[in-house]
Nucleic acid binder design. Sequence first.
DNA 1: GAAAAAAAATGAACTAGTTTAAGACTTTTA
DNA 2: TAAAAGTCTTAAACTAGTTCATTTTTTTTC
Lengths: 197, 197
Amino acid sequence: MNYKESHTLILNNIARFIDLTELEKQKYLSLLTEIKVKKKAFLMQAGDIAKYEYFITKGCLKVYTLDEDGAPHISMFAVEDYWTGDMASFMTKEPTHYFIKATEHSELLGISRANYDLLFQEIPKFERFYRILYQRSLVSYIRRSNHGISLNAEERYIAFKKKYPKITNRITQKDLAAYIGITPEFMSKIISKVNRM
Amino acid sequence: MNYKESHTLILNNIARFIDLTELEKQKYLSLLTEIKVKKKAFLMQAGDIAKYEYFITKGCLKVYTLDEDGAPHISMFAVEDYWTGDMASFMTKEPTHYFIKATEHSELLGISRANYDLLFQEIPKFERFYRILYQRSLVSYIRRSNHGISLNAEERYIAFKKKYPKITNRITQKDLAAYIGITPEFMSKIISKVNRM
DNA sequence: GAAAAAAAATGAACTAGTTTAAGACTTTTA
DNA sequence: TAAAAGTCTTAAACTAGTTCATTTTTTTTC
């Protein structure tokens, strides 16, 4: 069977944890929706109910909340081969607190809540896929927040740059500051200091 | 069937997400190990391989890492009806970076890695149980770290006290400081200020 | 490709939280 | 139950990061 690029990408992502038959692959792909977002467009805004969970096949998006002062806190940059969305809102059907905005023209595959539930009925193997996916997300989430806690802003910047060199080049300094958890002004200072070294 | 208290507690915890037959309950319980830890004793220390994942049936434990300066960072207080352990080490069989120390005399049920793997073969329903458990952990983890980011230390203290009033009374101020992410001295200042208000 | 908008740099004044040190109070242990 | 160990309080000096204001550089848009 010959698949288009985005389908190959998502099937390979799933094949990391479970094996699907050709028929199951067809079935799975039939449950997905193709979505395109232009640069600066929102995939999700605070107040929305999260209709989908997303897999990124092309582009880059920032996932963030706004605090009471209106300052953004970016929790992740989602690029090709990443999963994103707001699981809390997706599961509970309550309004999200998140914004997801494309920082580049992006293409995604989305699974709706109805199809997500259907998926477990039709192909129970997916319980295992998501069990492992969530387990690994949890591990990397815990690792990240634990790692970040004892480092100062400069060390967090250096660590990010080392871990995600490609993403570093795709995003603005301002967005990186909102991810690292500092002001753009202090980010600017850190970068000029690190470059001087 | 009549169960002992700790078994009723864990079966009820599991019944939140999946239904087990009487036979499956028996099978599941047979895969668990009973563990007791005295106050101040370690359940796990950095460098160990995490042999078990734990369910607390009695007591209180603190889960923490030490940073380069030897300062502790507490990531959770685990009390009755909580799951704990180091999933990263448990899954990869690499040494943990965590310490888990009882702050009270505690009793736990542990599942070994071998039995955890066996569990999915014998009762595949548990894929679903863990899928939902990890999903919910992820949601509350994300919520917590996102919530914490825009609050100052005083607000984080007030939020903790409101969310976990019982735990607040069971732990020392020093441990609470290591959880909130500040020095014990500053914790002391905050508490006397909040009490004065 | 000019004008407008957004991002980045720089610097001075400020603040939340740390460090160090010492004394008072509480809990643990023999 | 006395001594030792650990926890809590208070205060002064300090520092990482913020805020605000201005200028320069880069990117976007028509």
